[in-house]
Simulated scan of single mutants.
Amino acid sequence: MAAREHLTVDQVCAELGVARSTFDDWRAKGRAPRCIKLPNGKLRIRRTDLDLWLESCLEAA
């Protein structure tokens, strides 16, 4: 994968196996990965930001 890959919200939801409404809820509560809002209003998520966010979700066993 490209180091500067930008994912759509649909791609992130598919990868995480969650509904768009779940992602929107996380975002409204400040719990989603960092997003980039484009001038057209669409959102993009950097691959690196998604990976960092996933790491922050790890729980100790």
Rank of each mutant, 00 (worst) to 15 (best):
N40Y: 02
V9Y: 09
A14W: 02
E55D: 09
S21R: 15
W26I: 05
L50T: 10
A3C: 03
R34E: 01
A28Q: 13
M1T: 11
L16C: 10
E5A: 15
R31W: 07
L54D: 01
K29F: 00
A32G: 11
T48H: 08
R34G: 01
G17P: 10
L7H: 13
R34I: 00
R20Q: 08
R34T: 07
G41A: 09
A14M: 06
D25W: 12
R20L: 05
A3Y: 04
C57P: 00
L54G: 01
L43D: 02
C13V: 07
A2G: 07
R31K: 15
R27P: 00
V12I: 07
K42S: 13
G30C: 03
L38F: 11
A28S: 15
G30R: 09
I45H: 08
E5H: 12
M1N: 10
P33M: 02
W26G: 11
D24F: 09
T8F: 09
E5F: 07
E15N: 14
W53P: 04
I45Y: 04
L16V: 09
K37P: 00
I45T: 06
T22L: 05
D51E: 14
E55L: 08
F23L: 12
C35Y: 03
C35H: 13
A60Y: 08
G17N: 07
V18C: 13
C13E: 05
R27T: 09
R47T: 00
R27S: 14
L54P: 01
D24A: 15
E59T: 08
R34V: 04
H6L: 14
W53A: 08
K42C: 00
I36T: 14
A14P: 01
G17K: 08
I36A: 07
G30L: 06
A2S: 14
P33R: 05
L38T: 13
R27V: 00
N40A: 10
R34C: 00
P39Q: 09
R27M: 00
A2H: 13
E55S: 09
A32P: 05
W53R: 09
W26R: 11
E59F: 04
L58R: 13
D49R: 05
S21D: 04
L7Q: 10
A28F: 01
L52D: 13
W53D: 02
G30M: 05
A3W: 03
R47H: 04
F23I: 02
A2W: 03
K42V: 01
I36E: 11
N40T: 10
P33S: 06
F23C: 06
A14G: 12
I45C: 05
C57E: 06
V9E: 06
A32C: 07
S56W: 00
D24V: 10
A3P: 02
L54E: 06
S56R: 13
K29E: 02
K29C: 01
H6G: 04
C13K: 11
R46S: 12
E55W: 03
A2R: 14
I45D: 03
A28T: 09
G41K: 09
